[in-house]
Design a protein around this nucleic acid. Sequence first.
DNA 1: TTAGTGCATCTTAACACTGAGCTTTTGGTC
DNA 2: GACCAAAAGCTCAGTGTTAAGATGCACTAA
Lengths: 181, 181
Amino acid sequence: MSDTTKDADAIDRIVADWERERPDLDPSSIGVLGRLMRLANQVRAVESSYFDENGLTLASFDVLANLRRSGPPHRKTAGELATSSMLTTGGITFRLDRMEEQNLIERVRTREDRRVVYAQLTAHGKAVIDEAFGKHLDNQRQMLNGLTESELDQLAALLKKAEASVVAFDAKATDAAGQAS
Amino acid sequence: MSDTTKDADAIDRIVADWERERPDLDPSSIGVLGRLMRLANQVRAVESSYFDENGLTLASFDVLANLRRSGPPHRKTAGELATSSMLTTGGITFRLDRMEEQNLIERVRTREDRRVVYAQLTAHGKAVIDEAFGKHLDNQRQMLNGLTESELDQLAALLKKAEASVVAFDAKATDAAGQAS
DNA sequence: TTAGTGCATCTTAACACTGAGCTTTTGGTC
DNA sequence: GACCAAAAGCTCAGTGTTAAGATGCACTAA
């Protein structure tokens, strides 16, 4: 197994292009963030084709998994789903419509607050996610097969730290924008 | 500066949920791939709002940067753009329509092969990307401010290796699917 | 030559998600 | 009781993806 970190990849070529065309700039951040975006796209594509085979979309898998891991009664409001999934509120409305048609979830309204809509896993939905989730983890492990345990730990730790850094920057930026107005 | 790798983040909570609800499974891959996806979304959101302020979308910035770094005459075919950008061919057609309206690029057809369409940077388009790209790099560096140089190098190397691993798995998977049919 | 076939390239059409604004409901506050 | 701001979910225009369609090119063979 060759050391892939030595071979030039698409991002190395992009960085080299920029060094030639704009030698006045330092494009090194692309080495991290460009690779991050490309890898995320790659992973999404692989998972997406896997979900397709099982009659799910990335979004519906995400919602099912969200409800399943919350434990009984496997129910969350649309708003909770929006913040804890990778969809926006508009997307959740659309997605719950489709999932209701497929009998994966049902919408439940309460008497206490008639604004809220709970999405609740049906028996069928629970069976589907319980089946799919195990295979999903197998799939993920295989995707990461080229990295050692210690590399995976390092990568997770660095990603965690990077997210904290990005969130901190974002908070500062939107805060500054707020003060300016 | 506190060690953020010690504080529980959203992914730690998700992993803990799964360990409670499905103790028969090993959800550790989520620690890597879940964080990867969340971080990518976070970065996309930050960059997207920055592009908005400059009258661009993520996609149009991507296309402009693509043409700019290719050097004079700052021209690529729609197909080349599709493979080297983060858009598909259908998306490129749509995007080039909008960018032509904004006078950022122009479509150029050739006599040799009337199937191909070149997208070529206009003077205005070049001015826009030359202005935006420098700020974009500043932005990226600030997002990564919480990591040391050596951590950034490590992260880039691990992402590169991970992409190779995912690509290898994908090739094997689609190959097997091809043989099965 | 020219008809045929397969491949390459871009465009179109159906469907999914985002973000912003809208509607309904709730919970104060006067 | 009447307002009003905040909260919750829904709607809609815009943008992207995938798969199918339209057009053009190149090569083969009668």
